[in-house]
């Protein structure tokens, strides 16, 4: 057994394909994590159709729509940053990542105002106003806070990922022939977008 044969059988440790596979598997766990919440949502909506309808009137569709557009656009810029990296256009790629992060902040600021408005109106878990409402509406707002809250947490994690990526680009660890970490972070970001694609009609568009 020569050393070259050994090297052929055991290629160097880098395996981008394997990294992407691992990332996808991780995304499935995220998907099922939210899936559990969607099951809860589906059951309660089935049990309390009228109350969910009433409660949804409290949400502001415009804010929801703005956030949808922000996430869709950021998803596009994230995907483009990979193309830019592949083409060796590092500066452009970095710019696109910054734009993505910018949209993430638009999303979070929007969310912040939306939640503060709700809390000012006395709609928050355990509040007197909320507990006075029918059961279905309590459940609706419980799910609203948990699901959008968990989603926003994922937005924050996505931003942290991208900040790491920017640092690694600066350090030269990510470049035009080695960018799987950028790809994986973008995949994570698209997942955040995907979940919002379902959250938006389920919470904002029950008319």
């Amino acid at each position: 057994m020569s050393s070259t044969e050994y090297a052929a059988a055991y290629p160097a440790h880098r395996d981008d394909y394997g990294s992407r596979m691992g990332m996808w598997l991780f995304l499935f766990t995220e998907l099922i994590l939210f899936g559990g919440l969607f099951i809860v949502y589906a059951v309660y909506r089935y049990m309390h159709q009228q109350e969910f309808h009433m409660a949804a009137q409290e949400l502001n569709t415009t804010i929801g729509l703005t956030n949808t557009i922000a996430l869709l656009t950021s998803s596009m810029t994230a995907a483009m940053s990979i193309t830019a990296m592949q083409k060796g256009n590092v500066r452009f790629s970095k710019g696109l990542i910054w734009i993505t992060i910018g949209f993430a902040f638009v999303f979070m600021v929007n969310k912040f105002f939306e939640w503060s408005a709700k809390i000012q109106h006395g709609i928050f878990p355990g509040s007197k106003d909320l507990l006075a409402k029918p059961n279905g509406e309590i459940l609706y707002f419980g799910l609203y806070y948990v699901m959008t809250g968990l989603h926003t947490l994922h937005v924050i994690i996505g931003v942290i990922f991208f900040l790491f990526i920017l640092r690694q680009i600066k350090q030269g660890k990510i470049h035009s022939t080695r960018y799987v970490r950028l790809e994986n972070s973008a995949l994570y970001w698209h997942l955040v977008d995907l979940i919002w694609i379902f959250l938006f009609p389920l919470f904002y568009l029950i008319h």
């Binding site: 998803s75 596009m76 995907a79 973008a186 698209h190 995907l194 009609p201």
Partner: peptide, 23 residues
């Protein structure tokens, strides 16, 4: 049917995101 239509459109959107944005 409202919810069915909403979910159908959401699925179509996800399909595009999955296939193109997520490669």
């Amino acid at each position: 049917w409202t919810i069915v239509i909403a979910l159908f459109i959401a699925c179509v959107k996800s399909w595009y995101v999955l296939n193109y944005f997520m490669h």
